[in-house]
């Protein structure tokens, strides 16, 4: 895959080596469980930023580490 991602342990690698872990939403906020709707929103709703997004990736085919990085979703390129 053309996309490259920089694993903090292994360095820059082919996008295919990684699994996408979603937008970084931070740890659960305190009021997360007040209703099924708020819980569902926290788990499933995404901001879908058209631009630079902070997201989680796992180096599945390599060292296995989970890390965050910034990617420009319009160009599908990792920010340097």
């Amino acid at each position: 895959m053309a996309l490259t991602l920089t694993c903090p342990v292994c360095g820059k690698r082919n996008g295919y080596e990684f699994r996408y872990g979603g937008e970084d939403k931070g740890p659960k906020p305190d009021d997360f469980g007040s209703s099924p709707e708020t819980w569902c929103d926290y788990v499933h709703m995404n901001r879908c930023v058209a631009g630079i997004q902070k997201e989680w990736w796992c180096h599945r085919d390599g060292c296995g580490v989970w890390f965050t990085t910034h990617r420009d979703t319009l160009k599908n390129l990792e920010m340097e």
């Binding site: 989680w56 296995g64 989970w66």
Partner: peptide, 11 residues
């Protein structure tokens, strides 16, 4: 599984 456990303890 290892990925799952690490993901859910990442913070």
């Amino acid at each position: 599984t290892v990925e799952w456990i690490r993901y859910h303890t990442r913070y």
